[in-house]
Simulated assay, not measured.
Amino acid sequence: MSIVVEQAVQARLISSAPQLENVPARLGYEPSDPFAVRMVFPPPATLEGIEVVWTFARELLATGLDEAAGVGDVQIRPYGYGRTVLEFHATEGVAMVHIRTSELRRFLKRTQELVPSGSEHRFLDVDQDLAQLLSS
């Protein structure tokens, strides 16, 4: 059984409306995919009314807590005191959420306890990945 780190976070969805909307979200990490983290938004928080999962680099999240990071679909940067902004760019538009930086740091600490930075390669199953690639 694979060890998984999951953490619920309260995300504040930024929109053109004058008030901020709190939405539940979930961060996830699996050592079997050691470079990536997932952020899951439940159906009520999405335009499509379905669960939406964004996958991005754990290093991007770690860097974005202290300085602006990312130039693609996911961009992360500090925002004021104790908050971090995550921007998710899709063809439908841009979703921006504020999350407490302390929650993100706690999540990253838990992932580091499982897979320390720089040792991700030790958790990859290259043989299985290669076999899967060749079979398709």
Rank of each mutant, 00 (worst) to 15 (best):
V4N: 10
V4R: 14
V4K: 12
V4H: 10
V4S: 03
V4T: 06
V5R: 04
V5G: 04
V5I: 14
E6N: 02
E6W: 02
E6K: 12
E6V: 07
E6M: 07
E6Q: 10
Q7Y: 10
Q7S: 14
A8N: 11
A8W: 04
A8F: 08
V9L: 07
V9C: 02
V9R: 09
V9I: 12
Q10C: 00
A11E: 05
A11Y: 05
A11D: 01
R12S: 05
R12K: 04
R12G: 06
R12T: 09
L13T: 02
L13F: 02
L13K: 01
L13V: 07
L13H: 01
L13P: 05
L13Y: 00
I14P: 03
I14G: 04
I14S: 03
S16F: 15
S16Q: 12
S16T: 15
S16D: 15
A17W: 01
A17K: 04
A17N: 08
P18K: 03
P18I: 05
Q19K: 15
Q19C: 13
Q19V: 15
L20R: 05
L20N: 09
L20S: 07
L20H: 03
L20P: 06
E21M: 05
E21L: 09
E21Y: 08
E21I: 06
N22D: 10
V23F: 09
V23D: 00
V23L: 07
A25M: 11
A25D: 06
A25Y: 10
A25K: 12
R26G: 05
R26C: 10
L27A: 03
L27M: 03
G28W: 10
G28H: 04
G28N: 11
G28Y: 04
Y29T: 12
Y29V: 08
Y29C: 07
E30Q: 14
E30F: 09
P31V: 13
P31S: 15
S32R: 02
S32H: 04
S32P: 03
D33W: 11
D33S: 13
D33H: 15
P34A: 10
F35I: 10
F35D: 14
F35A: 12
F35E: 14
A36T: 01
A36S: 04
A36F: 06
V37Y: 00
R38W: 12
M39P: 02
M39Q: 11
M39S: 11
M39Y: 10
M39D: 01
V40A: 05
V40R: 06
V40G: 01
V40M: 09
V40I: 13
V40T: 08
V40K: 09
F41H: 13
F41M: 14
F41Q: 10
F41G: 12
P42A: 06
P42F: 06
P42L: 04
P42C: 04
P43K: 08
P43A: 01
P44R: 08
A45V: 00
A45N: 00
A45C: 03
A45M: 00
T46I: 08
T46G: 00
T46M: 02
T46C: 03
T46L: 02
L47Y: 01
L47R: 09
L47H: 00
L47E: 00
E48Q: 08
E48K: 11
E48C: 03
E48M: 07
G49A: 11
G49F: 11
G49W: 07
G49P: 08
G49C: 11
G49T: 09
G49K: 07
I50K: 02
I50V: 13
I50M: 05
I50Q: 03
I50G: 01
I50L: 09
E51D: 14
E51V: 10
V52R: 14
V52E: 13
V52L: 14
